[in-house]
């Protein structure tokens, strides 16, 4: 099962995939392809309270909690950001809150995409990673109180 693998294992797998590319063009073509294949987020979730604000592109992010694991769905209006989102979801979705909170996400550096995490306000990716961790933290706290939460959540779990 895919979800049973650790964050580090999935990160390693992505880094290995990228090591096959000779050029930046190839890397970006792959990311664009991932972006195009990312399943669209249902319109009901594309609302202002689910927006992760970046200066240029918009990211919508929602999370759900099931059997001790956090699941994410997200979309963006920019396709490269969508590709990067797709990888973040692949790495973090289906993991435990603790593992998500502690994830170092070194793969972003390994595949040469750190520029997209820089503090340039150029996209919502850094904010998105933060928000994914916030969701995990919220579910960790909530976990001691309530049971499963099948609904994909947004506002009330933000910024806890």
């Amino acid at each position: 099962m895919k979800n049973q693998r650790t964050i580090e294992e999935i990160e390693k797998e992505i880094a290995e995939e990228f090591s096959l590319f000779d050029s930046w063009d190839d890397k970006y073509e792959y990311i664009i392809d991932l972006g195009k294949k990312l399943p669209p987020l249902e319109d009901q979730h594309k609302i202002d309270e689910n927006r992760v604000r970046g200066c240029q592109s918009t990211v919508w992010l929602v999370a759900g909690y099931r059997d001790g694991k956090v699941f994410y769905k997200a979309e963006s209006d920019a396709v490269i950001v969508k590709g990067l989102i797709s990888m973040l979801i692949r790495v973090l979705s289906g993991q435990s809150p603790d593992n998500i909170i502690q994830a170092k996400l070194n793969f972003i550096q390994q595949i040469g995409m750190t520029t997209h995490l820089a503090q340039t306000r150029s996209n919502g990716l850094l904010a998105m990673v933060k928000q994914m961790k916030n969701f995990a933290l919220a579910y960790k706290i909530k976990n001691s109180i309530s049971l499963n939460d099948y609904e994909y959540r947004s506002a009330e779990t933000k910024n806890n």
């Binding site: 664009i32 592109s57 920019a78 396709v79 997209h116 150029s122």
Partner: peptide, 8 residues
Amino acid sequence: HPQDIGIL
């Protein structure tokens, strides 16, 4: 999206 154009 302008951002995609800028990145590329």
